[in-house]
Design a protein around this nucleic acid. Structure first.
Lengths: 126, 126
DNA sequence: TACTATTTTTAGAACAATTCTAAAAGGAGG
DNA sequence: CCTCCTTTTAGAATTGTTCTAAAAATAGTA
């Protein structure tokens, strides 16, 4: 793996877990000032293809990249805008059982208030 | 309700049920050639606010507007790109029960192959 | 090492869907 | 027929992402 790709991966792995492309860009730039946003996207795509990370699309706003590639669900905090992991048990199986059509895949984003914001802390996003 | 707003609503109501803004624009233009895309968006927002229709956001590509405002789930056909209704029983309740966090709302889009495409018909979107 | 092929990076333009802005037009009520 | 409020228009702006073509880096192999 080439240096800049490794840096993108490292930044994401050292993060809380879910970052948007522009935040990854800002962080990688600290190491590689010449880095360009297109390179971040290139590498995020490559890393996603290769199964190192996961691309989490959202209906509103920028997509996130998740350092954990194994399938699980996500929630967006309505207060601070952070993406957090959500445990829904074996939701996928349940979904497939209850649906009246064959499900190839699905995009699910829950909207919640994250624990930090619930406890009266952060809220950087209002 | 003013004429153009009514026309937007009518076009959607006379459709199969789920249209994107630019398709609504094209259809309304048949009645009002001077219609402008911004007006379609204005009216779609107003109609959504007033509960006449429903705004269905997607993670990839344009959003849809649904003539049926009552809550239900949706699936996108991977073959032709159409949005169709999906019956998932009382999915919302099930979701809230199985989640480890409070759920304010959620965005869910299933990916499927619609009945028409399954039966070897349409596929306009490949 | 030298040569070639492939991959990665860059810079900047392009893109798509949507929103914004400010002005013009339309309609409603007194 | 004024005045106010809503709707419409035209076009620019925005946002996040992708594309393009050229340059640079890297790898593979003789």
């Amino acid at each position: 793996m080439v240096q800049k790709r490794a840096a993108v991966l490292q930044v994401l792995r050292e993060s809380e877990g879910h970052l948007q492309a522009d935040e990854i860009y800002r962080r990688v730039k600290a190491y590689y000032p010449k880095m360009v946003l297109a390179t971040v996207y290139n590498n995020l795509h490559a890393l996603t293809e290769d199964g190192y990370i996961r691309h989490v699309k959202t209906a509103s706003g920028a997509d996130f990249y998740d350092k954990t590639p194994t399938p699980h669900e996500h929630a967006l905090c309505a207060s601070c805008g952070k993406l957090i992991d959500a445990d829904l048990g074996d939701f996928g199986a349940m979904l497939r059982e209850s649906a009246d059509i064959p499900i190839l895949s699905y995009d699910l984003i829950l909207h919640t208030v994250c624990p930090d914001c619930r406890d009266g802390e952060p809220q950087k996003n209002i």
